[in-house]
Design a binder for these strands. Sequence first.
DNA 1: TAGATTGTTAATCGATTAACAATC
DNA 2: TAGATTGTTAATCGATTAACAATC
Lengths: 220, 220
Amino acid sequence: MPGGNKVPVHTLERLATYLSILTDMKGRHIETISSTDIEERTGINAAQFRKDLSYFGEFGKPGIGYNVPDLQARIARILNLDRTQKVILVGVGNLGSALLGYPALRAENFEIVAAFDANPAKVGRKIWDLTIMDISSLTEENARLQAKIAIIAVPAPAAQEVAERLADAKIRTILNFAPIVLRLPRDIQTRNVDFVQELAVLSFHVGAQKSDNENEVDNS
Amino acid sequence: MPGGNKVPVHTLERLATYLSILTDMKGRHIETISSTDIEERTGINAAQFRKDLSYFGEFGKPGIGYNVPDLQARIARILNLDRTQKVILVGVGNLGSALLGYPALRAENFEIVAAFDANPAKVGRKIWDLTIMDISSLTEENARLQAKIAIIAVPAPAAQEVAERLADAKIRTILNFAPIVLRLPRDIQTRNVDFVQELAVLSFHVGAQKSDNENEVDNS
DNA sequence: TAGATTGTTAATCGATTAACAATC
DNA sequence: TAGATTGTTAATCGATTAACAATC
């Protein structure tokens, strides 16, 4: 049980994976799982799973395993996903629009409660249930909404300025789809999603096909 | 210089970051950079940068630094991005459509050359420059196209089957947007992009705001 | 030459996993 | 009780970074 313990980021990432699997199993009325079941389902080492949980307390029964609904609920609680998390979206282009319609967000207890854009032609338009608002009203709107999470889906050159506006609007965490490093106060957590970087890593492996002794890679 | 050296995946990810920065600098006619400049620009430790390059040879001049166009070209070559990489997209929903229109792909030398969907209502429709094709024609089409990289943007329940079809169609690497673990032969490289997992990690930090001594996290 | 910066080694740091006593 | 599986420790493994000789 913690008390100033540092939780590795990799542990949090895996926790999210465990949660989605457990939510699925709960829906299928599976009662109990063991760490070995998790390993089979995810490829994550069983000891890793137990270690990850150990940062937050004790969850299972020796000889038995873990109660699925209980573990699901406790991990949801740890990730603050036992209640709906409000999310603000900035940038309603192709990608932003796609995120607004992404059903898995809702299923995992995220709700996009507002969408902003800098383009006057877009402001006022409706998309799904939301009316697109002007980026300049961000602080004002979030004073009311109190969202803590934001998604940046604007072109790279605009991303830094948007991030600063979000910081002003009391956003604490940002998921950034623009391929740049955001410079922000340390108390604001950011994570980047960069498709092109992902593709570039894959592209390296394409070369490895031809001559098999070159370009070996250390997966692990 | 290599010859059976294993390259860490993290090194490849950073290489992609270096490449995009160098491409940008090249466009702005910057001649030379040092590893310290890279650290300032990216937050990646200067020694890390030099170590990453060392897997592939020598790139700089002691006392001087690195020639920007030369380094850019050599990293592009390492990642096989000195020529256009053909990419196949499977799943033309909101997300898939957004990816088709994503300008950064083109800029980094990726080209989506075909789009497939299982929905008969979509097959035959045009989107951007492409005519959506039926998933059943995948193997046949790729025999002609010879793409080695594919993107899966279908709903989670369909993703495993699509991945197997891609493997049959001689695809070697897959970028998977469905939140599941793909089970594939080891010679097929996959990378997952999972927005919801990213948001879940951020959501953990939202809780950390209130009581400052709980939920500490180890970033590094 | 003096100053700067590389490439690489060695030290540090952190993450993964095997092993096992505790216990259901 | 015998078998199974946890939580945790200790060992292993890998990644990051400080330090520095080489050299432009």
